[in-house]
Each structure stands twice: as C-alpha cells, then as structure tokens.
Design a protein around this nucleic acid. Structure first.
Lengths: 345, 345
DNA sequence: AATGCAAATGCAAGCGCTTACATTTTTTGA
DNA sequence: TCAAAAAATGTAAGCGCTTGCATTTGCATT
C-alpha cells in the first residue's frame, strides 16, 4: 500500500466512530442533533473529531439527507452595486444559519438565466432566489416539479401564490414622475432597459405613464428609448432623445447607471443639469451621490430584500412555512438633478 | 403508497438504464465520456434521458467521483466593483467549462475568511481563489493537506511556489507616486486601508514610500492614516489628514473608493481639487470616471485576473498542470484629480 | 471459418453519510 | 423493588452515482 496516499486519506465518520467506540449513527447524531446524545458521549465524540481533524463530507451528507443546505441566487449581473449589496445581505443571513450561497449571473439573458437555474437545481440547491417575474412558464413548472422553494425578488407582487419580496415598481416610478410634474415638467422622456423579459423595467415605464394623465398629458406620447444597462448606453440614449424637437425638459431613467450616463452626455453637450434638462435615476446606489449633480432617484431597499429573501427561503425549507408576499416601501430621494424646468413650454 | 409523492420521485440513472436496456455504467459513460459508447447506444440513452427528463444528481456524482466540479472564490467584499467584475469574469470561464462557482465574502475579516475557506473545502470545492497572500500559515497547511489547488489573486508574487495571478502593488503605487513627484509634489500623505493582514494595502503604502527618496524626501515622514474601505471613511480620513500643518499638497489613497471620499471631503471643506490639493486613487473602477474631478488612478486588470484565475484553476485540477505565477501589467490612468501643486512649499 | 484484439458493455463494489427501526440502557413512579 | 416508559445507542439499508475489472461483441486478419 502506498504510504503517502494512505496518509492523505481524510478521516471519515467511520473513523471517528471506531476511535470513539460508538456507532456511526451516534457520531452523526452528535454532529447534527447534539441534544439527542448523552453529554459524556458528545464530549468523547467531539474530542475524537478534533483529534482526527475530521470534517464531514458534504456530498455524502447531501446524498443521504437529500438536502444540501445550499441556496442559490441567479441575478442579472454582479456589476451593478444594487445586486451586489443584495447578495451580500443574502449571504450574511445564510452563513449565520450554517448555509451556503451559490451565485450565478445571467447578463440579462433569459437563456443563460434558464441554464443557470437548471444548473443550480441539479446541484441540489434547497431553494432559490430569482429577480423579477418574467420568465418562461416551463421554468416555473420545472421548479414546482422539483418542489424547490423560490423567492422572486425586486418586485412586490407575483403570480400563482409564489413568494416574493420587493416593492411596487409601478408605484415607485409613478411617485417620482408625479413629483416632477408638480415641479412643472410637461415634456418628459424615458430611457429604459430593454423591457422584453424584464418586468421591472416595464413597470417603471408604466409607472411614469400612469402619472402623465394627471397633468393632462398623453401617456402614449412619451418618448421611450430602450437600451442595455450601462453608462455608455445611457450616454448614447440621451443623445438620441435630445435630438428631438422640442427637447424634453426631463429625462427619467430606468436606473441610476443609465442616469449617470445621461448626465455625462448632457455635460458633454454643454447642457446644464438641472438648468437645461433634469435627469432622474432609480435604485439609489452610491453612484447617485457621487455624480454631480447628485441624482434625484428612488431609493430601493436592496439590503432588506436580500436579508428577507434569505430568511423566507430558510423558513420555507426548514419550517415548511407558507409562501409570503412582501411589499416594501420605497421613497424618492431628492437631490440636485431634478428641478423645475426653466421654460414651461 | 402515496401516489403524489411517488409521482414526485425524480428519475435516477437506474431508471434511465432500465428504460434504455443498458447497464447503469453505460448510462454514466454516455453522459460523461460519450465517445466510449457506440453511436446507437448513445442515441438510445440520450433519447431516454430526454423522455424521462432526467438530470443527474450532483451530490451522488460528487460522492462517487470524488470531485464536485465546483470552484470557490473568497473575496473581501462584493460591494467594491473591482471584485464584482473579477468574479463575473471568473464565473464566465467556469460556466463555459461546465463548472460552478461558489462565492463568499469575508468583509476583510481574517476569521470570517478562514471559516469561509474551510466551509468551501468541506463542500468539496475542487479549487479555490483567494485574494492576497496574508493569512495564517495553518490555512495554507490545511489547503495543502487537502490537496486543493489555490490561486492567490491580486498580487503578482507568492511564496512557496503557490500559483498567483495579479500585479505588483509596490511597483504600481511607486509609479504613480513618481509621477506626482515629477509634477512637483513634496508634501504627500496617504489614506490606506488597514494594513494588518492586507498585503495589498501594505504594498501600496510601501510603493509610495519607495518613491520618496528619489525626491530627497524621508520615506518614514509621510503621514499615513489607516481606515476601512468606504467612501465615508475616506471622507473622515481626509479631514484628519488636512488638520496637519503644513497641509499636504497631495493625498494618495489606497483605492478609488477612499479617493472618492477624499474628494467629497475636500469639496465640503471648500478646497479645489486639484487646485488646492491633488488626490489619487487605485483600481480604476467606474466610479473614478464619474466623480468630478475624475480620478487619476492606477488601472488594475480585474477582469483579466478573474479570467486567468479560472483558467489556471481548471488547468491545475483537470490537467494537473504545474502552479504558475502570473504578473500582469498595470498602468497609471491620468485624469483630472492630480495636477502640479500650486505652491511648491 | 477460426483466431486474436480492441472496443463496448456489464457487474458490482463502493463513495461517506443519514435515518427508520431494533435494541439496550436509564429513568420514573407506584 | 420492579415494570413500564423514555432516552440513548446500535444495526444496516440505502441515497444515486462512478469505475476497476470481467465479460461480451465486432471486426480485421489469417
């Protein structure tokens, strides 16, 4: 026998059992349900565990227990701080409960998202967090078939009694639009992320549209440019929008990243923000306070969503608790990028 | 028997084997080594797989094969875009190779980092990426014992022949400092992250110190304030530093986030940047171009590091390739926050 | 047609753990 | 003090897959 590789073999639960002179069942129980075991046994087993430097093999545990203690999150991108923070909070709760997080990003691509979801399930995720409602029904069917608890985040309402934790994108966008209207804005344009398979983006546009009739405006007349989420795209979209005549007095953006791009573009065009044109964002990430003028935007409770998503998931898996729908508050954060229009044409 | 739960049972490899009239070994081979199997068999098996909607159970696979096809990354924080981007690139390569990423963040806390590392290993990560060299020797011993390949990222040099992919923090910081010195700066202060158990932070300070003698300055005389990485902390640290007399003409920062805080603080104090005081960053994240004045900083190849880390890890695990040490280039990005000092006192 | 060899397939033993059920030990209370 | 109940422990059957080795099949060669 090869001594070297022999030495490399990791101790198993069997080894611990033999050494501690108990059965493997007792070792397992000591590790998983310490109070089902006499104190004397527990001490002896734990001592052996330490002595052998034993660590349980999670694959074996998962296979036997039919549970991985792993929870997945499939997010659109890690590059936007808003998701990064949600994740950080999500992870914190999981770790505090002895669970592990699996992360994957889909780059806003439905096909990649589907692959990632299936992959996570194949890897035995006990539960999963997804962003937004929009995806093929068969994915939901698949998830139900596998009986994997799902939490839809970033939206306050979901269909079919699915759990969700988020906020009302329509209402939030509407609220911001109403504020702008009350300041006197009448020519409003919108830079949105692509709305196909992105209900959050769609809802935000819809929210602004919903506010327009209050000011006697035609909701359908609002110019909307759709693009990808990036600063550069925001810049380009802004240029497109400002080519119109008459120009809008306010350009609302689907998120802060686009808004930062818009501000940059405006400044490059020699326009004063908010003097010549107002710009608003959505999310309230750190960027919003850094850019100059600071962004008037909607504050989204990212950390809270991450934390609650983890708690709900754990509750559903461990305590078999019922699905819940949590709708959090958002609020408009007023900074400098939105002001009354100079000419109220 | 409960029909419902019976129906819920997922098909196993056994089921596929029975249905396709082959042994389980053949199904396994069809899935893992398709070219070891006749085309006829392969087609029949794959057809059955589809018909039964079979998905392999990763825990069982991992247990039997002694490999999880999972790779871990333990990073200080997800909230800094620089790590988020590295991760995104890391994941992309893994996914393209049929592997999965496990992520954990340590909040710059060595104890949490250690726990996370052990946890990832317990979960059977086939390889792991860590940021920087600084950690207890026993962690490295543990990793060696388990024979888990490790890649140290964010630094171009590592001890004991360990793999690394990164850049020379000392040289990069020195280069930036030299540029500042050539502009005429003599009173330089530094805002650093805590340097305990953070070799990158230490190296950056050391790099600036190394540049000072060139200008006939005393390296040890440079004021250094250590703090946590956050905009707020950068602001506070800047205030502390500017309380000195004479004030520095240049405040260099350990990363862009701190630098943005410093710029904010300067502006709140009514100081013009770079007129009254120059400020530099490190990392070159998006923030650096958004803040006004835009940051002069060191560009760090985050995406490339993430990509290479994944490739190296896969190579070490799958092809048993030897550890490599990759030292990437960095370069100074000149923007507006660094200029010649007004008074060359 | 017989032979030899390589390729394809099958057999069955685990991988390291959990857990239903059986057995033993301890506790309880009359 | 002793039987019954409760608590602790043990037994052993898997969980769903991979893989070394044995067997069968197909094909080229003689």
């Amino acid at each position: 026998m090869d001594t070297k590789s022999y030495n490399r073999e990791l101790p198993t639960l069997q080894d611990v059992a033999r050494e501690a002179r108990v059965s493997t069942a007792t070792v397992s129980r000591t590790l998983n349900f310490p109070n089902q075991v006499t104190e004397a046994t527990r001490l002896r087993v734990m001592e052996t565990v330490r002595a052998l430097n034993y660590t349980p093999n999670f694959s074996a545990r998962a296979l036997a227990a039919r549970r991985t203690n792993t929870y997945g999150a499939v997010i659109p991108t890690m590059e936007n701080a808003i998701f990064a923070r949600g994740l950080e909070a999500f992870q914190k709760v999981l770790v505090a409960n002895g669970a592990t997080m699996l992360v994957a990003s889909s780059s806003y691509d439905p096909q990649i998202e589907e692959d990632q979801i299936r992959n996570m399930i194949a890897r035995g995720a006990d539960g999963i967090v997804l962003i937004g409602n929009d995806r093929k029904p068969e994915i939901y069917r698949f998830l139900e078939e596998r009986q994997v608890p799902v939490i839809i985040a970033w939206t306050g309402s979901s269909l079919a009694g699915r759990s969700c934790v988020g906020f009302d994108n329509v209402a939030a966008a509407r609220q911001l639009a109403l504020k702008a209207i009350s300041l006197g804005h009448r020519r409003i344009a919108f830079i949105s992320a692509y709305t196909v398979s992105n209900d959050r983006a769609r809802d935000r546009v819809a929210g602004v549209r919903a506010a327009l009739p209050d000011a006697g405006l035609d909701a359908d007349a609002m110019p909307v440019v759709e693009t990808k989420y990036s600063i550069q795209c925001g810049q380009d979209a802004f240029a497109t929008i400002m080519a119109a005549d008459p120009k809008p007095t306010l350009v609302m953006c689907g998120n802060d990243v686009l808004a930062v791009g818009a501000i940059k573009a405006a400044q490059e065009m020699g326009l004063d923000v908010p003097g010549d044109v107002s710009i608003t964002g959505f999310d309230d990430i750190e960027l919003a306070t850094i850019v100059s003028p600071a962004l008037t935007t909607v504050h989204v409770p990212h950390r809270q969503m991450g934390r609650l998503a983890a708690e709900m998931l754990l509750a559903e898996v461990r305590d078999k608790s019922e699905p819940r729908q949590i709708n959090l508050e958002t609020h408009v954060v007023e900074r400098q990028s939105l002001a009354a229009p100079r000419d109220q044409g």
